[in-house]
Measured scan of single mutants.
Amino acid sequence: MSIQHFRVALIPFFAAFCLPVFAHPETLVKVKDAEDQLGARVGYIELDLNSGKILESFRPEERFPMMSTFKVLLCGAVLSRVDAGQEQLGRRIHYSQNDLVEYSPVTEKHLTDGMTVRELCSAAITMSDNTAANLLLTTIGGPKELTAFLHNMGDHVTRLDRWEPELNEAIPNDERDTTMPAAMATTLRKLLTGELLTLASRQQLIDWMEADKVAGPLLRSALPAGWFIADKSGAGERGSRGIIAALGPDGKPSRIVVIYTTGSQATMDERNRQIAEIGASLIKHW
């Protein structure tokens, strides 16, 4: 067993022997301040990774656009098919120029040779490549099948209805392509620590998230040296922004954090800054 596999296998073990965790309302004060600064709703939840206990939450059962955070769930569904012998990570998928959609920095470079399922998941999570996500959605049967996968996990809230990039439209009061912070946090925890996926697939999923290259201005910008984070960000229309993450000190994750916002007129930089400040408060009061 590799060191990384050992780390993920012992996530519940280490967490069980940690000192009790206590909620700190100071972080919620910052979440509410972010709402004021952005002029928009902000949803927040913080779960203990081992027990699933909610440590703090704000608007945990209000719907927010998922945006690209759905790509972690998508690759979880792909990995479940791999575990069941219905898919192979090494299978190569070929596609054409007509398949390319807006923001496809990886797939646009491989029109000639195609990409493997493993490479597509890596591109979808680490670079948020939209064509990679659409190609992977095709392998599982489309958005409705991802929703069905989530329902089978016990998540009857999260739903995907459309493809990239239309799913980022974020129309107010439109339930399409949305989740709730509580539902997303619980589902992410199941994917990373539950028995739904094999140990190898859980490790692969967290490795992809740990290698995320496009979430630097968010929670990662607030992390002290030595902290662990595996995350996936999302951005959408109407001032929408979000991030889902597993993080913790001492090089291992111990909490799940989900943050979503929508309806702001603020710039992307300002949305990023507010999420980073929430992260800084979380870490300060850990």
Rank of each mutant, 00 (worst) to 15 (best):
M1V: 04
M1S: 01
S2W: 09
Q4A: 10
Q4R: 13
Q4T: 09
H5S: 05
H5P: 09
F6R: 09
F6N: 10
F6D: 05
R7F: 09
R7S: 09
V8N: 14
A9L: 07
A9F: 12
A9D: 05
L10W: 07
L10R: 05
L10V: 12
I11F: 11
F13W: 11
F13K: 04
F14T: 11
A15Y: 15
A15Q: 08
F17P: 05
L19E: 08
P20A: 05
P20C: 05
V21Q: 05
F22T: 06
F22G: 11
H24W: 09
H24L: 10
P25V: 11
P25E: 12
T27L: 08
T27V: 14
T27R: 03
L28S: 08
V29S: 10
K30T: 15
K30E: 07
V31L: 11
D33R: 15
A34L: 08
E35W: 01
E35G: 05
E35A: 07
E35M: 04
E35R: 03
E35H: 03
E35Y: 02
Q37L: 14
L38N: 06
L38S: 08
A40W: 06
A40E: 05
A40G: 14
A40L: 05
R41E: 07
V42E: 00
V42M: 10
G43R: 00
G43K: 00
G43E: 00
Y44R: 00
I45H: 05
E46K: 10
E46W: 04
E46H: 08
D48H: 07
D48Y: 04
L49K: 04
S51K: 09
G52N: 08
K53Y: 13
K53A: 14
K53P: 03
I54D: 06
L55Q: 08
E56K: 12
E56S: 11
E56M: 08
S57T: 11
F58E: 05
R59Q: 06
R59W: 04
P60V: 12
E61N: 13
E61I: 10
E61T: 13
E62G: 07
E62Q: 07
R63K: 10
R63S: 08
R63I: 08
R63M: 07
R63C: 07
F64S: 01
P65E: 02
P65D: 01
M66R: 00
M67E: 05
S68P: 00
S68A: 00
T69G: 02
K71T: 00
L73W: 03
L73C: 08
C75L: 05
G76I: 05
G76F: 04
G76E: 01
A77G: 08
V78N: 02
L79K: 00
S80W: 12
R81T: 07
R81H: 10
V82F: 07
D83R: 03
D83T: 05
D83F: 02
A84I: 11
A84K: 11
Q86G: 11
Q88D: 13
Q88K: 12
G90L: 10
R91W: 04
I93K: 04
H94G: 10
S96R: 12
S96L: 13
Q97V: 15
N98R: 15
N98E: 15
N98I: 14
N98K: 14
D99H: 09
L100N: 03
Y103C: 05
S104C: 07
S104N: 05
S104Q: 02
P105Q: 06
P105G: 04
P105T: 06
K109N: 12
L111M: 13
D113L: 08
D113Y: 11
G114P: 03
M115N: 03
T116A: 07
T116C: 07
V117E: 03
E119H: 09
L120W: 00
A123V: 07
A124R: 00
A124V: 08
A124S: 11
I125K: 00
I125E: 01
T126P: 02
M127R: 09
S128H: 00
D129Y: 00
D129T: 00
T131I: 01
T131Q: 03
T131D: 01
T131N: 04
A132P: 00
A133N: 02
N134Q: 05
N134P: 00
L135N: 03
L135A: 06
L136D: 00
L136Q: 01
L136G: 02
L137C: 06
T138Q: 15
I140A: 07
G141E: 06
G141I: 05
P143V: 07
K144C: 12
E145Q: 12
L146T: 04
L146M: 13
L146I: 08
A148L: 14
A148T: 14
F149T: 08
L150G: 05
H151W: 15
N152G: 14
M153Q: 09
G154M: 06
G154A: 07
D155F: 01
H156L: 11
H156Y: 14
H156K: 15
V157I: 12
T158P: 00
T158V: 04
T158N: 01
R159W: 06
L160Y: 02
D161M: 05
R162Q: 08
R162D: 09
R162T: 08
W163A: 10
P165Y: 05
E166C: 11
E166W: 15
E166S: 15
L167M: 12
N168K: 02
N168C: 06
A170E: 06
A170K: 06
I171T: 14
P172D: 13
P172Y: 11
P172A: 14
N173C: 14
N173Q: 15
D174G: 05
E175N: 13
E175K: 12
E175F: 12
R176M: 10
R176C: 09
T178C: 07
T179K: 00
M180G: 11
P181H: 01
A182F: 15
A182Y: 14
A182C: 13
A183L: 07
M184K: 01
M184E: 01
A185R: 00
T186Y: 13
T187G: 08
T187Y: 03
R189P: 02
K190H: 13
L191D: 00
L191Y: 07
G194R: 09
G194A: 11
E195L: 04
T198W: 04
T198F: 07
L199I: 15
A200N: 15
A200W: 07
A200T: 12
S201Q: 06
R202T: 15
Q203F: 08
Q204G: 05
I206Y: 15
D207H: 09
D207P: 02
W208M: 08
M209Y: 00
E210L: 08
A211V: 08
A211G: 13
D212Q: 07
D212E: 04
K213D: 03
V214T: 09
V214Y: 05
V214H: 06
V214C: 06
A215F: 03
G216L: 08
P217G: 09
P217E: 10
L218G: 04
L219D: 04
R220S: 04
R220I: 03
R220K: 06
R220E: 03
A222M: 12
G226F: 06
W227F: 08
W227V: 02
I229W: 02
D231G: 04
K232R: 06
K232F: 00
K232V: 00
G234Y: 02
A235W: 01
R238T: 10
R238M: 14
G239V: 01
R241D: 02
R241S: 06
G242D: 01
G242H: 02
A246S: 09
A246F: 12
L247K: 00
G248V: 01
G248M: 01
G248P: 00
P249G: 05
P249N: 08
G251H: 15
R255I: 05
I259P: 00
Y260C: 04
T261V: 13
S264Q: 06
S264Y: 04
Q265L: 14
M268S: 08
E270F: 12
R271Q: 10
N272R: 03
R273Y: 12
Q274R: 11
I275V: 12
A276H: 14
G279D: 00
G279S: 10
L282S: 06
K284G: 10
K284Q: 13
K284V: 10
H285C: 11
H285T: 15
